[in-house]
């Protein structure tokens, strides 16, 4: 099977990879670019563990082909912290004990960052619906919602100052 050569940006860095035309972006990120923070929970777009941004749009990377990323910007959990500082969402997830096993955490962080980018001050209901595509089996979502609320507050404050 002949591969497709793709040039894209991942977390701000230019990358190039060759993948079979049928290979998912998730497999490319995990197996070719070693970004194993992108998790596979189902491979069918139901669990959100593989959530990444594609040109600022939140997607399940298992439902996107690696070849489709040509010329586009991909954001994964590995790109959340900048200059050695954790993103406020990352800090809030740790502070609020919003993870137990942690397998869903990368997907939740990427999805929550995407939400707060669109809506800096979401209500509880807006948070719950925005994160409804990400499954967590450990926490009952309670502390996740609280962490997102707290991070949103911090980020609003940062923006003001």
């Amino acid at each position: 099977m002949s591969g497709v050569t793709v040039s894209a940006k991942v977390n701000g860095d230019a990358v190039q990879y060759v993948c079979p035309p049928s290979e998912s972006l998730m497999d490319v990120l995990r197996n070719r670019l070693n970004l194993t923070g992108v998790k596979e929970g189902c491979g069918t777009g139901d669990c959100g563990a593989c959530s990444v941004t594609l040109d600022d749009r939140l997607v399940c990377s298992c439902l996107v082909l690696g070849a489709e990323a040509e010329g586009r910007a991909i954001g994964t959990v590995e790109g959340l912290s900048q200059d050695g500082e954790l993103h406020p969402l990352q800090t809030a997830f740790i502070d609020h004990a919003a993870l137990q096993c942690g397998i869903c955490t990368p997907g939740f962080l990427v999805a929550a960052k995407s939400l707060l980018g669109r809506n800096p001050n979401p209500s509880e209901e807006e948070i719950r619906y925005a994160l409804a595509g990400n499954l967590c089996r450990c926490t009952g979502y309670d502390k996740i919602v609280r962490a997102v609320q707290s991070a949103a507050k911090v980020m609003r404050k940062q923006k003001r100052s």
């Binding site: 995990r30 912290s81 990352q90 997830f93 004990a97 993870l99 942690g102 955490t105 990368p106």
Partner: peptide, 21 residues
């Protein structure tokens, strides 16, 4: 005390290695 978990940073940065990683 409600201290921060020691594996927290690994798990929010994608560094933590699971079965398939």
């Amino acid at each position: 005390n409600r201290v921060n978990r020691p594996d927290g940073v690994d798990k929010v940065t994608g560094r933590a290695k699971y079965g398939a990683d």
